[in-house]
């Protein structure tokens, strides 16, 4: 969900673009982190921990914690909190450690 009215900030959103998450069509703004767009679409679980399969979400937002690693356009281990969203991106939950393209 986006912030409707902010008392101080005026958000300058980029172009609205379509992408898919697990095959489902979603919209976000071009250039914002993929993770932020997913959050806006209500997607909270971004990956599973490798051993215990625990759900993990958006956590550090600066590309350090690896909580948001996903498969994007066939590439594994993309840090979706620092990867800008582009039109037509195919975003998927990654299985385990992912695979080399």
């Amino acid at each position: 969900m986006r912030i409707k009215n902010h008392p101080i900030l005026k958000f300058e959103f980029g172009r609205k673009v379509k992408f898919t998450f697990e095959g489902k069509e979603m919209y976000g703004y071009e250039g914002e982190p993929i993770g932020a767009a997913l959050h806006d679409n209500g997607v909270m679980v971004l990956r599973q921990s490798i051993k215990l399969k625990r759900p993990r979400g958006f956590f550090c937002a600066i590309g350090h914690c690896s909580s948001c690693l996903m498969e994007v356009d066939g590439e594994s281990n993309v840090r979706t909190c620092v990867e800008p969203l582009k039109e037509g991106m195919v975003v998927k939950l990654q299985k385990g450690k992912g695979t080399l393209k």
């Binding site: 900030l9 932020a36 959050h39 979400g57 600066i62």
Partner: peptide, 23 residues
């Protein structure tokens, strides 16, 4: 403490103040 919905303070700021997303 690893459940989605637990955020570092910086991430909360990033979502709401940079990208206008309600955390």
């Amino acid at each position: 403490c690893d459940l989605p919905g637990v955020y570092g303070a910086g991430a909360v700021q990033t979502l709401m103040n940079l990208y206008g997303v309600m955390p």
